[in-house]
Nucleic acid binder design. Structure first.
Lengths: 278, 278
DNA sequence: CGAGAGGTTGAATAAAGTCAACAAACGTGG
DNA sequence: CCACGTTTGTTGACTTTATTCAACCTCTCG
């Protein structure tokens, strides 16, 4: 029930004492974004020139460690990440966290709350964050007069689903090494998209959180990163990562479950090994 | 492009020779459902008394083994399962299938196609099926005049997402035994909902498909079912399942990744063991 | 400078996967 | 309708992978 938590000024701290701050929009922001800004952020075509000057969406800020929403809390808004890093988690019957995603710029939060009108996951800021608040009622009302927006909403929901499906595919079929490799590639791509270096970056989450996200223990994550470091695919030092051989990371699939014995499994294995061993 | 398929009369056959019939609505159906029927099926409130007499949706039939849609095929419709059993799969770079879901009555198919306008998964009939065809354009057009329908669409998409999230949680955090147990409980619940026996039913899929769905090998699935049989929680014979101790199945969670060492892990383990051992 | 959280590494263990042999059911064609 | 080949399911022996437990190290923050 109770969660630990102390929000500090530095990005890299999460677990804080419990029930200190209520989740939700404390620190009301000063910034506003137009509908067009929002669509641009989501990479969604927005053609219509309308009266959007007064269609503005408020920003909200969260400090590292703060919760944007908690499980069971009443749903009334989606959020788009304008800046910062977060994690979303499910909490099981024993209080164990299962990390579902690490939202960053342009990602959307809160979609899981639409259907039951209660958020079914918890979103926690891993660094100081600036989010755009999208009141759901307002959004759907707008969608009725702006067809592109209507489509955008459907698209975004579907996109989230496809993302989760890819995650299921990964958890169901890949080895620990392959999962960690994909995780690094994914981060690299995202950083590139945000205009940061895709070769050199800092992890925003702990080994424990990465492990939870990938269905592995923190030790396995640590060991795998060390192994990649060893063979020169990356250089890792604590949370600093340098990608040295992106192609190798991308090709490092491995097939631990025997989902593929029927086919060309021998060739695959050899090809994968070539990368894994060196 | 072309997909394989030869539908046979018996339910239990899938992988078939290639490039025979294109996926999609061969055998145009004779049945139609009203918007109200559809909403009822989805357990969605539908209050408005409107001109729905002519808002009819066509049914389509698929025989066991046929594909409803394939990966990369143009998206233009969702489907609701009216009767029958299916599987949806992702196919990786080596042609290995990853089962994503086993849709049955009242489930929706095709949502993953909305955003890219291409289906990103493949749906295969495991038995003869009767589906309701929902042309997406028609659906969204209708939603503009029927607010409940608009909400229904958002709800359904969100619901799918929550389902996938639960799946990720399961794959990321549960042992083989716990996954198989949950799978059985899930089936039991679904059969109950459809008015069938929740205690005695037939599996519609192979051990291989179950394994793929749960991120396990077919041998592990087989062994786990045998073990449950051994200790009397179920009786299993090939595809016939009898649930003998539903509560035990529901309580059989187990925590193989160390996602929980911080807390009351000892008590949990003991409680789980009590069930697992007997 | 000291405490505590986060990270690394090693050794032992446990869980699940692999390979292989066999058995049961199905469906096809003689 | 029965025999036979194919697909599906079961089980055992063994191997591999990842987890567990524990010690130690390293940063950061107060």
């Amino acid at each position: 029930m109770l969660q630990t938590q102390i929000s500090t000024s530095k990005p890299f701290s999460q677990t804080l004492p419990s029930s200190s701050l209520p989740a939700g929009r404390q620190c009301q922001g000063r910034l506003w974004s137009s509908l067009k800004d929002v669509c641009d952020l989501l990479r969604i075509p927005f053609a219509s020139v309308c009266d959007d000057e007064d269609l503005l969406f408020q920003h909200v800020q969260f400090k590292a460690g703060q919760r944007v929403h908690t499980i069971g809390q009443n749903f009334d808004a989606l959020y788009i990440v304008h800046s910062g890093f977060l994690k979303t988690v499910l909490i099981d019957e024993y209080g164990n966290e299962q990390v579902l995603s690490f939202p960053m710029k342009a990602d959307i939060l809160g979609v899981d709350g639409i259907n039951s009108r209660l958020y079914s996951s918890e979103a926690v800021a891993l660094s100081d964050c600036d989010l755009i608040l999208l009141p759901f009622k307002k959004l759907t009302a707008l969608a009725r007069t702006h067809v592109e927006l209507e489509n955008a909403i459907y698209d975004v929901l579907s996109r989230e689903l496809v993302r989760e499906q890819a995650m299921v595919g990964m958890l169901g079929a890949l080895s620990a090494e392959a999962r960690v490799a994909r995780f690094l590639v994914m981060l690299s791509d995202r950083f590139a998209l945000m205009g940061y270096s895709s070769k050199f970056f800092n992890l925003r989450m702990t080994r424990h959180e990465i492990g939870s996200y990938l269905g592995l223990t923190l030790e396995t994550v640590s060991r795998t990163l060390s192994a990649f470091n060893e063979i020169g695919m990356i250089a890792v030092n604590q949370r600093t990562i340098e990608i040295k051989d992106l192609e190798a990371l991308k090709n490092l699939r491995r097939l631990p479950p025997s989902r593929n014995r029927a086919k060309q499994s021998k060739e695959n294995k050899l090809a994968a090994m070539a990368y894994a061993v060196q």
